[in-house]
């Protein structure tokens, strides 16, 4: 069971309090009607599924109930960082180079 740092509660809390919510930084298009069928298909279904740093959404469901973003290294299953929804995506290489790999 992982410990996850909630960027709103500012605490490391057990995974039991959280719910996974899919890949991050996939914004709903402002005007879906303007998208081609292929573009809309990609928005709906195509995900990166990387071996390495994955940017993903979590919800502190049994806590503050806020959605936030996280960078998780999928091989070792370790959180490299969590950040509030709307904040920019951190640099994956810089996160991997960080000696602590701390979830803060």
């Amino acid at each position: 069971m992982l410990l996850i740092y909630c960027p709103y509660c500012e605490q490391d809390l057990p995974e039991l309090e959280f719910a996974y919510a899919g890949e991050a930084h996939i914004a709903r298009p402002a005007d879906p009607a303007a998208l081609s069928d292929e573009e809309w298909r990609d928005f709906l279904f195509i995900r990166s599924n990387p071996k390495g740093v994955h940017f993903e959404r979590w919800r502190h469901l049994n806590g503050c109930a806020r959605f936030f973003n996280a960078a998780r290294e999928t091989v070792g299953d370790k959180f490299l960082a969590t950040y509030k929804a709307g904040e920019p995506r951190p640099d994956a290489d810089a996160l991997l180079a960080s000696p602590t790999g701390d979830a803060k």
Binding site: A21, R28, R59, L61, A65, F67, A85
Partner: peptide
């Protein structure tokens, strides 16, 4: 409720 919160918090804050 989860779906509504998702859209409200992340798409239409």
């Amino acid at each position: 409720l989860n779906m509504m919160e998702d859209y409200l918090q992340t798409e239409w804050p």
